[in-house]
Computed example of a mutant assay.
Amino acid sequence: MSFRAAVVTFPGSNCDRDMAVALEQASGTKPLRVWHGDADLPDNLDFIALPGGFSYGDYLRSGAMAANSPIMRSVKRAAERGVPVLGVCNGFQVLTEARLLPGALMRNSSQHFICRTAALTVENAHSLFTSGYASGETVQIPVAHHDGNYFADDETLDRLEGEGRVAFRYVENFNGSRRDIAGVLNAAGNVLGMMPHPERAVDAAHGGTDGRRLFEAAIKALA
């Protein structure tokens, strides 16, 4: 199978290369590298990734300016067609600001930048992103964020819970996220936003490979 993925780079992205390497290791094919100012994405993409970093220096709100970049119009159209879209860390922030996912990412409750390996519980193991895990499994994925405190109102949270759209939870809630949420899916299940960095957990030499299964699951689901 030829796997056609794209990694979007915004001014201030710093995990775009890591994401591209992870996708290439999992699929055997180099992803397309796309600049945020490009107006269009190819129509034949299988997967789109919005990487971590500090797009536009996190001015206004994290992800707010990137959500209005020209490329995001194409990302939204692709997501509406069912193309899988993964947003990690700053990419998650961009997805919420672009209204592709509900909620918002606020300043960590400690008011400090947090960089560590986090234990996550897999809440939904049935999405195209998470089918490589078992429900209730604990995985180890690195985090590195200052604005990772997931917030949504009770009605939205109840809907996410009821529809099985919480993908991951923190075992230890160190950033204040409501209901320990670390990652959420859209209603169709083809858009995932998560604060932890699976692309930093694809090589045993870096401390673990729990993140690799996310990429492999998506590729298998699309085969």
Rank of each mutant, 00 (worst) to 15 (best):
R17W: 07
L185M: 07
P198H: 04
K220D: 14
F113L: 15
A118Y: 01
F174G: 07
S135V: 08
V75I: 14
A218S: 05
G57Q: 11
E137V: 09
M72Y: 11
I219E: 09
A104G: 11
T96C: 15
L160N: 09
D38S: 15
L222D: 01
A187L: 06
R169E: 03
T29V: 13
D40Y: 06
A39C: 06
P31W: 02
V83L: 03
H126L: 07
S69W: 03
H197D: 03
I141R: 05
H145F: 03
L60D: 11
S13G: 09
I141L: 11
L185H: 05
V94D: 09
E97V: 13
Y56E: 01
D154S: 14
P84G: 04
G176L: 12
R99D: 15
R73W: 00
L120S: 07
L60V: 15
A187I: 08
A22V: 11
V166F: 01
P198L: 08
S135N: 09
P51H: 04
P196N: 09
R213D: 08
D153Y: 08
G103F: 07
I181Y: 02
R4N: 13
L45Q: 08
H206F: 14
P196G: 04
V75G: 09
M106A: 14
K30A: 15
V191F: 06
E137Q: 15
A5R: 02
N173I: 05
S177R: 10
V94G: 10
L222Q: 06
R169Q: 12
C15N: 12
C89V: 08
A39N: 11
L214V: 07
R178M: 13
A201P: 06
